[in-house]
Design a protein around this nucleic acid. Structure first.
Lengths: 144, 144
DNA sequence: AAGTGGCGGTTGCATATGCGACAGTTGCAG
DNA sequence: CTGCAACTGTCGCATATGCAACCGCCACTT
């Protein structure tokens, strides 16, 4: 009746691939800075997009707001990130990297670049681009 | 220097896609059976591969052994799964679905099939196959 | 200007998770 | 046979997580 193959099931494969690559990649920032995946993401967004508000980060990174809140607190405590109250909206806070945060961010992206190159080598340029496109597609229009 | 684009970074995209699809898919088995992703996976493996040992499941599902241990305990308690001591190796236990477990498994795979069809519709048959192949490739040879 | 619904961010709580330690078992080397 | 490394599965503990409740603030209605 149902010739359901687990090995063809996309959510399953996606989780495996995500888990596998993330695990390999996270080793660096975890050991070097004791950072969480969420923290890494926030650093990445802040580093490339400048100052953001916590809810901006929620939208862009697809992270829960409580997760963002705690990650931001941790990063602030380590002196990597600074909060500034918004003059316009007293609820919001503008987040930005400190000098030290920028240094760390540089290191993080350097490693990320290297890791990315490794993956591209393994898959080939064409398949990588294809894969990236499909993944973006899959995530799109699903506004959870 | 580094023109690093977060939006092209595979681990990032993979996590987003995995999270997004899993979140959508997990709704069913979570609401219907209060099941975890790990529990779903174990059900899937046991349902399609027959009797397995806990460490077999670890290997096939890429799950931590403590995670498997707890998930198995939960499934057993709900009467979906049965343990039988191995006669050959007194450390190991053979795990298999109960009748009720098989019923639940049938329902789970039915839903999975339907969900999978939805995804295939969205991506198209060709891209789906391509994607699956690449994902398998990415997970392979990375024996964490 | 008072009421109201909604937003930004934090926190409590219950649960899930990862890791390392552990007891019991196996099998292989000497 | 004895000792020892490796393996199976469980558990404790510290931490991470999701969800909902919550506080203060905003904007819009009347």
């Amino acid at each position: 009746m149902t010739d359901f193959r687990l090995d063809d099931f996309l959510p399953y494969l996606l989780n495996n691939a995500a888990e596998s690559t993330s695990r390999a990649f996270s080793a660096h920032y975890r050991e070097a800075y004791g950072m969480t995946r969420a923290q890494w993401r926030i650093m990445a967004h802040l580093g490339s997009d400048g100052a953001l508000t916590a809810s901006d980060i929620c939208v862009r990174s697809h992270l829960e707001k409580s997760k963002v809140s705690r990650a931001v607190a941790a990063l602030e405590e380590r002196g990597l990130l600074r909060r500034a109250p918004s003059t316009i909206d007293r609820r919001a806070e503008h987040l930005s990297l400190t000098d030290q945060g920028r240094q760390v961010h540089a290191d993080l992206t350097a490693h990320a670049k290297r890791f990315s190159d490794t993956l591209i080598d393994r898959l080939g340029k064409a398949r990588t681009t294809e894969l990236a496109a499909i993944l973006r597609d899959l995530t799109k229009d699903r506004d959870d």
